[in-house]
Design a protein around this nucleic acid. Structure first.
Length: 271
DNA sequence: CTGCCGCAC
DNA sequence: GTGCGGCAG
């Protein structure tokens, strides 16, 4: 009992990391080449903008998951010795609006990273920040988050690490059906997405790829069939991607259903 | 928090 | 072995 008491104190002390969030203008600058995703409706409710070193978020304070999370991943960011902290922390940038561990506990859902922890191997602070709840959404664990979704994340990294792409922009977020599902466990509920998208942009080759997967157990081998036109993701989410690109480029990039990209020969992962 | 466990690749 | 998690102590 005494031991548990001290453990709780230690947890409480560690829960105030005081990792300062960056001024959001820094994120606007970092993603200026393609522009941050725009909510067609203006957002209902209005998103809370969060800027961290490795990613930016438009957080929905009602559903309490992100509208979107954007990363810009240069090759050098994928190499290093940073370790997963496994400390899922309330995001200080969200204040009281941040989900907390108790909101997910015993829900049966994983606290699923939107920007994956593995995208920040070069930096322990950036890896730690990826565990903020501003970057989480409830995901089916077995055969989704730990399966096909992880494979997708690994493939994207391999396209940078092994595919002669100096960097990629990656936007990740949830999609919802009309029928609402919520985790009612915590003091504040969290909405359970019915699916997740990734929109990936290669600024060097000027190519883009959309992926849209249902939030349920899936056969890993079926990943290619979840490629969709980015236009489809826009219709489903009410988001507009790449607002800084000219109309003609946007139309071309968003109109056709893509296929998963490849990698160079002798590189690990991929497939 | 630290450690150990399962699962998939 | 590596990366995604959970859970016990």
């Amino acid at each position: 009992m005494r031991r548990l008491f001290f453990a709780l104190i230690a947890l409480g002390a560690a829960a105030a990391p005081a990792l300062a969030d960056e001024d959001f203008s820094k994120c606007e600058a970092r993603y200026a080449a393609i522009g941050l995703p725009v909510l067609k409706s203006g957002g209902d409710p209005e998103p809370i903008a969060v800027c961290h070193q490795g990613y930016a978020v438009a957080f929905n304070p009602d559903s309490r998951v992100p509208y979107w999370v954007i990363e810009r991943v240069p090759k050098a960011q994928l190499s290093g010795k940073a370790k997963r902290s496994n400390k899922f922390l309330p995001d200080p940038a969200l204040g009281d609006a941040s989900p907390v561990d108790a909101d997910y506990r015993a829900s049966g859902y994983d606290r699923g990273h939107q920007a994956p922890a593995g995208d920040f191997k070069s930096s322990q602070p950036m890896t730690n920040e990826s565990f903020f709840f501003s970057n989480m959404a409830p995901q089916v664990g077995k055969d989704f988050n730990r399966g096909i979704w992880r494979i997708l994340e690994t493939d994207v990294r391999s396209w940078i690490l092994c595919g002669d792409r100096p960097e990629l922009y990656i936007i990740t977020g949830p999609v919802f059906d009309e029928k609402e599902k919520w985790i009612p466990k915590g003091k504040q509920r969290v909405r359970v997405p019915d699916g997740f998208f990734k929109v990936i942009y290669d600024p060097t080759r000027k190519r883009a790829l959309g992926m849209l997967l249902p939030n349920k157990a899936l056969d890993t081998d079926t990943l290619p069939q979840y490629a969709v036109a980015i236009k489809t993701i826009e219709q489903r989410t009410g988001l507009v991607f790449f607002p800084a690109l000219n109309k003609r480029s946007q139309t071309v990039l968003k109109s056709s259903k893509g296929i998963l990209w490849g990698v160079d020969g002798s590189c690990q992962a991929g497939e």
